[in-house]
Design a binder for these strands. Structure first.
Lengths: 219, 219
DNA sequence: GTCTATATGGGGATAGAC
DNA sequence: GTCTATCCCCATATAGAC
């Protein structure tokens, strides 16, 4: 304590927390407003820092977006591919049962919605395809490509009688269905006259799994 | 020709075409870039008019967006509800067969993709939920609410053994699946290694109909 | 109805002191 | 690492001449 070295002790901790605060807010605002409508000024202000700090830590807006997106997505994607790996070893002899497979794919993102940070991750994910082209393409191939291909392989194993092309289409529809659910558009409430709640993600999982299993294995 | 009246003869035609040109371009740019990223300047320039003209004809950006969106959506929605009405009269005695119902719901938007203007309509529709909240809510309830409720009723008739809530969830998943398809995200191509083409909307319809029928009527 | 010019504010990004 | 001040551009919207 007496000898204060240049900047090392207790200087790294707060820095990390500043970065985290910025990322939290960035996730929140990007997920709510989208890339273009969420301004760096608004993010800085909500995080309690100033613009210069934001640029010091993350560089350009693009890069901040990528960092914010990836922080959430990497986490969830790891959960997903871990779930796949476990299912793989649990059914070493044959194919993974369809329901298990669907559930392992859908659950990590859908149940993320039960925490506030997870909700932001979810929404950023769901709306990623409507962000500026170059950003979304870059980010997507960074995180998803490998895992997705592994899933295609596994699905083909449980559904060997379905042609590869048809299978791909169906998996594409699956992605659409669950991503739309993550968005919480309010259409479910409008349609059901308030009987259903699109924020009830446990229910959403319970409903979507049989729907997808049936759709994927349709004749 | 000799007597030139104030502004009436042949003055209404070009005006309409200016408005149409603006709407065409607005649809195109909004559908490609989204509300925030598509600037009124860019729209005016691409339409070959200046900013003041754009405001003269459509008022604020919000209103231009609504006009552009509604022009396409109203058309497609009318096709959809006409298809429903026809199916209704063709099966006066009992419920409309599931496949007919699904097809009538999905086809108007999906086959719109075969024309350039329709493609823009499609994409605006698909990404509407990621536009600023107030705009999307307002527009959605203007065009879709009635038709959607009519569909819920019809689906319940063909699928009487499914609870109302579960049915709503499934219809919600259906919306997600087909809207995502309209977006053309490139994920289909990535997943299939280029074997499938997400721009082939006839194929998309052929694939999605059995998928949805199976999913909706899952046990 | 159409144009030019401009008002007014917000955006991303950086310089340079501390 | 943090701050203030500022550059410079682009945004939406309107005024007012023609």
């Amino acid at each position: 304590m007496t000898v204060t070295e240049k900047t090392r002790p207790a200087a790294t901790e707060p820095v990390a927390s500043v970065r985290n605060r910025i990322l939290d807010v960035a996730q929140e605002l990007f997920s709510e407003l989208g890339y273009s409508a969420a301004s760096t000024r608004a993010i800085a202000q909500a995080a309690g820092v100033n613009l210069a700090q934001l640029h010091y830590h993350f560089g350009a807006k693009r890069d901040l977006f990528k960092a914010a997106y990836l922080r959430g997505a990497v986490q969830v994607t790891e959960a997903r591919s871990k779930a796949l790996a476990e299912a793989r070893t649990a059914h070493a002899e044959g194919p993974i049962p369809l329901e298990v497979l669907v559930r392992s794919f859908v659950t990590p993102f859908m149940l993320a919605g039960n925490t506030p940070a997870g909700r932001a991750t979810m929404r950023m994910h769901a709306r990623l395809h409507t962000e500026p082209d170059d950003i979304s393409k870059e980010v997507l191939s960074t995180v998803y490509d490998e895992t997705t291909l592994a899933y295609v392989t596994e699905f083909q194993k449980v559904l060997p009688h379905i042609s590869h092309e048809t299978l791909c289409w169906r998996l594409y529809f699956m992605m659409g269905a669950y991503r739309y659910t993550l968005l919480r558009t309010g259409r479910l409430e409008a349609m059901s006259g308030g009987a259903c709640d699109s924020g009830d993600f446990d229910r959403a999982v319970a409903e979507i799994v049989p729907f997808l299993c049936a759709g994927l294995s349709a004749p």
